[in-house]
Design a protein around this nucleic acid. Structure first.
Lengths: 356, 356
DNA sequence: CTGAAAGCGCTTACAG
DNA sequence: CTGAAAGCGCTTACAG
């Protein structure tokens, strides 16, 4: 014999299905059915009532691990972000957590950093935990990781950043549209020579905001001089400051800088100040994201607001739908583009030539 | 018969222990032992080598769900925060995630909000997921939830906020010490009438920063007038603005406001501006936490820096230690107070009476 | 050093 | 409508 069998009537430990069955006087399988709203229709109403009452009284909670082993469903969703501490991703995670909790799923988060190998490694760990689906906030435009998940049949949804492969479900902001709002605003103020602080070209937000910026210039009949675009090496304040410094040195004629995100814009503000220039008197600066508290920086930042929390909620619902679709062979999920809005504050003003 | 037995030699699906055993030509129990560094010493070295090679070749990964069911260990740690999107908690979560990943544990996060009932509910969900330990960032000074977890024998560690019950492991900042740094700084500048924007008294940070503030006034021989202390209803900018407005109306004589955290300080800055006062010319304002980017607000905020990321790492290590201790009946974990540092920026200056 | 068996706590096809 | 049995994929006490 392998081990002493524990007494299923022992009330000392957390109650199991078996003990509950013993207490009610029916078989465990009947208890299992009575407790499942779907299958309880097949059980005698009186039995269902007795089972439910006993479960309540004994404080029975089904063991999710045992259930997972049997059903092959963990009710866990993995989320991989490049940086948990980045203020842009926190509301996304918050939105995901909220929507998942409503559906009785839990959220396993991993910080993948910006290094592709580490991201793969963290994703493998999540998959090893038998997550039912994965939400990726780390995607680059061509991403091995995304492809591998697809190949394994793991439901995957991208959030905030899309991949070039349009077959993948993604919940993103209309990045090009956001830049169109910015350029329209600056053009209306009278700016004609506008620089762009681009994000990394390998990330969809960097690429699409840049091409959106260029398209908007043309639409407004403004010159699109590639020299006036400088790409930052990363979405950080420091990278933004360095890129803005290079841009200001090379193109002193520009009267505004439209940055690809708020962190870059904050860096640009530092570079502007370091050169002894005034914002917006000498040069206007705009951001993208509307991060918390950018309304309090000096000067308050004009930026593009994205509903990150809603983005997270939608991504959660999309993975859940993808999981159901896997069972039902339902239609594939698709890309959703949320419409951003412009928030005008004090960092944008009339160009200096109009002031003079 | 219940069901057709799947062929364990079928290579189509993810390999199991049994299939690996079949491939190597030994029993599953031997494979299990060979793959566990602890118990592989008891297996013939040649067999260990063959098993490991086959595992590698077939890409075998033990199923964590099955393992959990058997060992009663999920390798999952739950974290309950009041608000995932709050910039103070993100680096804490980041630190926890990093330290857990190193120990091969994963992190399940839940957003409990500020409502006690919802917090309990979310904690129950985490526990239902069979987490091995819980990190609470939501603790109030007297917290039912904390007590209930203790009663169940679930390893619990508090982070950032402690409870009044000193038996509980907690990783916190020296909150009183942080306020002492602030008061010393303001006193050195010449301030003698200093107001305090307190946090909620039911939370340790609110209570301890307030009492630390009062103790520091006495230590510097400054008058401790309770009218000069106004408690905010929550740690938000809006609550900070409202409380600061009340404080300024009641005590126009104060020349500085020491806020219990940065969010309250940002609100105070708004209230100061709304009154047509200048910071720091008319009144100095200080914060607590050194949230990201408060160096860029207008004026750059003098505050107390807390190493939130390290706090998270330590909390993770503490739960892991508590889990081991549970097995080993090792000594109970204890409270760790991290030393904060003062960061002087432009929101604090000489009092207006010295300027005149 | 290795194998055979039991069991973790569920769910579900099958039989009645 | 209900019960008995098998099985999800592991680990581990026991026997040899």
């Amino acid at each position: 014999m392998a081990r002493r069998k524990p007494d299923p009537t022992d009330p000392g430990t957390r109650p199991t299905l078996k003990r509950l069955a013993l207490a009610v006087g029916v078989h465990a399988s009947t208890v299992s059915r009575a407790l499942d709203p779907q299958r309880s229709t097949v059980v005698a109403p009186a039995v269902v009532a007795r089972v439910r009452a006993a479960a309540e009284r004994m404080g029975y909670r089904p063991d999710p691990v045992a259930r997972s082993l049997r059903t092959r469903r963990s009710h866990l969703i993995g989320v991989l972000v490049p940086d948990i501490a980045n203020p842009v991703f926190s509301p996304i995670i918050g939105g995901i957590a909220e929507a998942l909790a409503q559906a009785d799923y839990a959220l396993v988060v991993a910080d993948g950093g910006t290094d592709g190998n580490r991201q793969s490694d963290m994703a493998e760990r999540l998959i090893a935990q038998r997550i039912d689906g994965l939400i990726l906030a780390t995607a680059s435009r061509r991403d091995d990781l995304v492809e591998r998940c697809r190949a394994r049949g793991l439901p995957v949804v991208l959030v905030n950043r899309a991949s070039d492969d349009a077959r993948l479900a993604a919940i993103v902001s209309d990045d090009a549209g956001g830049m169109a709002l910015v350029v329209a605003h600056l053009a209306a103020l009278g700016h004609r020579r506008i620089g762009h602080l681009a994000g990394p070209a390998a990330i969809s937000t960097g690429y699409l905001r840049r091409s959106g910026f260029e398209a908007a210039l043309s639409a407004h009949g403004l010159e699109n001089d590639p020299r006036r675009i400088e790409a930052a090496s990363a979405y950080t304040r420091a990278a933004g400051a360095a890129a803005a410094e290079a841009l200001l040195a090379r193109c002193p004629e520009i009267t505004a800088i439209a940055a690809a995100n708020d962190l870059l814009a904050l860096g640009a503000l530092e570079a502007v100040r370091a050169r002894g220039l005034l914002c917006p008197g000498d040069i206007s600066v705009t951001g993208h994201n509307d991060m918390p508290h950018v309304d309090l920086v000096d000067p308050p930042l004009t930026t593009v607001r994205i509903e990150h929390r809603e983005m997270g909620q939608r991504a959660a619902r999309a993975v859940l739908a993808a999981i159901d679709a896997k069972d039902a062979a339902a239609p594939a999920a698709q890309t959703v583009k949320l419409a951003p809005t412009l928030v005008v504050r004090a960092s944008s003003g009339a160009p200096r030539d109009l002031n003079a």
